[in-house]
Write a protein that binds this DNA or RNA. Sequence first.
RNA 1: UGCUCGGUGGUGAAAUUGGCAUCACGUCUGACUCUGGAUCAGAAGUCUCCAGGUUCGAGCCCUGGCCGGGCAGCCA
Length: 561
Amino acid sequence: MSNPKPSTVSNFIHDRIESDLNENKNDGQVVTRFPPEPNGYLHIGHAKSICLNFGTALKYDGKCHLRFDDTNPSKEETEYVESIMEDVRWLGFDWGDDLFYASNYFDKLYEYAEDLIKQGKAYVCDLSGDEIREYRGTLKEPGKESPYRARSIEENLDLFRRMKAGEFANGERVLRAKIDMKSGNIIMRDPVMYRIQKAEHHRTGSKWCIYPMYDFTHCLSDSIEGITHSLCTLEFENNRPLYDWFLDELQTECHPQQIEFARLNLNYTVMSKRKLLELVKNNHVNGWDDPRMPTISGLRRRGYTPESIRDFCERIGVAKADNTVDIALLEHCLREDLNKIAYRVMAVLKPVKVIIDNYPDGKTEDLTAENNPEDETAGTRTLKFSKEILIEQEDFTEDPPKKYFRLSPGNEVRLKHAYIIKCESVEKDDNDNIIQIHCSYDETSKSGGATADRKVKGTLHWVSAAHCAEAEVRLYSHLFTKENPESGDEDYKNFLNRESLEILTGCKVEQSLAGVKPGLNFQFLRQGYFCSDPDSTNENPVFNRAVSLRDTWAKIQKKGS
RNA sequence: UGCUCGGUGGUGAAAUUGGCAUCACGUCUGACUCUGGAUCAGAAGUCUCCAGGUUCGAGCCCUGGCCGGGCAGCCA
């Protein structure tokens, strides 16, 4: 496994950092941060942000902090904290000692809030939630000032301290910044800084009953940590004036620059934590790490490598335009990585028996198979060959269409690493199902043998019936049937692909795959890349199809139909 | 009819900051192949949302439109 390398392609953020560096801003330092809220599992969209933030630090010889933005105890859990750390690490990034929690700053944040009150720039407001919304105005109409806006500094201080002391109920009072109720930017209409929430926090327990809001917390956390460039997604653009306002009014020593970029969207899936949570909670998928999910843990279980995901994030670039990336690019990145490193093995997913009539009864042969033609150092393994073998049902047909290179009556194919065989006859049951196929083999055509270079059009994968293991194989396709399940008025769940998971049992795999450890990538020859699943047992190895191989034949068939 | 951001092949991103619109994915040909994989060679597809203007020269600057996104949580 390789470590992340500094990115070679630039983007508008790196351009700005370079111009800052040229002006010797921040003493030539670059410090970024990845600030997830621990309220769900990370997904491929977060991977973009992780690669951007950690990658930027790597490129400019700076640092990237991991900071949990844990200011809302009702939604956050330790389980999420742990999964996030695991995922970031797995992606190949290292935050060193720079692990932080916004909740670590609650004391400081509280002092900053009192500071603002003392400056007359924050006040305690008794309006109810509904009233606050009413007073806020609308997108087109200005808001009205709260009747509590004019409270004295002393009264505000007293009330805020009593909020902290737990004297009031949830929702009874909030602390607000005194900015401008007529601002065109609704964010600036006296935003709430603190709310009362009598809830157990996953780190601070019951120490606090007031919790700071995102806007107040984020800029100050960045400032406290000495972040130079605070990279976030586009929906926070409107919040930047507020980010700057808090830091300006509090005259903090460090004033990071917030820069926004467009979040990642992928077709045939959804990318909001809320929707992913819903899929998990309502059992539309089997947990956060279901291989169909765009979560990091799902992709990992599916068989994606950290390298392929980083490569993907590099290729999609960073810009400000809304975008939907074709999932085919992600798949391309995986194939490219796995092509270099995955061992080739043979697995027959839907078997049909072939009997080689002129092959001696009871004979077995050891054949030598290369593990990876793309990598000489990968070595070889031994394969057993015998009279009865299994091939893929798809690889035989009685009436071959045009350009069909596989096995059919009277036709020859090569068995990979073994002999050329010819179909002599077909045996069927009463219902016209093929039971077994009778073939003859050309003894001199053995790989490495006398007429080994004799050409036939097709080459098939196979396993020896007496020398194989049974396995379960899970085939995945797009989670949604629609490119953009979120467009239009209809509920995205209506577009869930009912056939996104196909479970195949009774698959036959070569012996070397028996008892395989989970998390290993293989190429099943001619089929795709598969990854052993944690559900595997010695008796029942389970493989997930990460991605199929490019399939020219499938395209030809599609055009024909 | 508030504030704000964006618009470059099918998709994503570039364009040395005003100088021949480039790259990748995808698509399509063909070659090669003991994986219909990989690889290699090639092709089509954008004249940059529109209309003006400045300029020898505009994707880039200016003006006016058009279209799309975000913002009215005591979420982040």
